[in-house]
């Protein structure tokens, strides 16, 4: 059993596509699409959202993600209409990135609050890395991995919970926006799922190695997050 997700979009195709994308990263999480109006136009439908919330009920809680303005209003209204509003949370996060982070967190067994936080942490990471140029990786990227890294650092986890969904989402979110190949203990740092498989607890040391134009920035980014305990106790 895990937290279930509901995707509210003005477009049926966007909602269905987002679900398809997230399901690939979180095969055991139930993710429901509620896109478009009942008659298939662009817009949002309370009926569709409520149907999705109904289907999602009975899990370990539900987290709702919505795209624009009135989709957020429709999602809020649906939560107000729902018979049992307990355990339904609306995440304030970018739809796609937030959904993927939420799905990965749900897959790893986070509770509803943890899943919502994972989605919202992505938004924070994006805002923080907003100024960094995200150039497409060049073909030499794979060749770089075998050579010595351009930058590296060792950082000890100081937060009580160690590496879990939210820190993994923060790291992966920020790293994705940088032009660097980054690994943490040999795992691709842009992969949230990968980072969580590290199962690194408090006191574990993370070896960060980065190659590429933003290598130093990437090591500093991860180091900063780890040293600050990801803002957690």
């Amino acid at each position: 059993m895990s937290v279930r997700l509901v995707v509210v979009s003005h477009s049926e195709k966007i909602a269905d596509g987002a679900v398809e994308l997230a399901a690939q990263m979180a095969p055991d999480v139930q993710i429901l699409a509620a896109g478009g109006t009942t008659d298939g136009r662009i817009g949002t439908s309370l009926e569709k959202v409520m149907e999705a919330l109904d289907k999602a009920a009975g899990g370990d809680g539900t987290v709702v993600l919505a795209d624009l303005g009135s989709a957020v209003m429709t999602a809020e209204s649906a939560i107000e209409f729902a018979e049992e509003t307990g355990g339904i949370l609306l995440a304030d996060a970018p739809l796609i990135e937030g959904l993927v982070a939420a799905a990965v967190a749900a897959q790893s067994g986070a509770d509803a609050k943890g899943v919502k936080d994972a989605a919202e942490a992505v938004a924070a990471a994006f805002a923080g890395a907003g100024g960094a140029a995200a150039e497409p990786a060049d073909h030499a990227a794979s060749a770089r991995q075998t050579a010595a890294p351009d930058a590296a650092g060792d950082f000890e986890l100081v937060n009580r919970a160690g590496m879990h969904a939210r820190p993994a989402a923060k790291i992966a979110g920020g790293i994705s926006a940088l032009d660097a190949e980054v690994t943490i203990n040999g795992i691709d740092a842009s992969s949230m799922t990968g980072l969580m498989t590290l199962a690194a607890g408090k006191g574990s040391v993370l070896r960060v190695e980065a190659t590429g134009p933003d290598a130093e920035k990437a090591v500093e980014y991860v180091g900063g997050l780890v040293r600050s305990g990801f803002g957690e106790p």
Binding site: S45, L46, E47, M73, T74, E80, F81
Partner: peptide, 22 residues
């Protein structure tokens, strides 16, 4: 009426009037 408005209006007026009637 609230349900019908929220489900079929589509724009922001749907949730606004829907919530009002609800």
């Amino acid at each position: 009426t609230a349900m019908a408005l929220m489900s079929s209006v589509g724009g922001a007026a749907g949730p606004l009037y829907g919530t009002a009637f609800l």
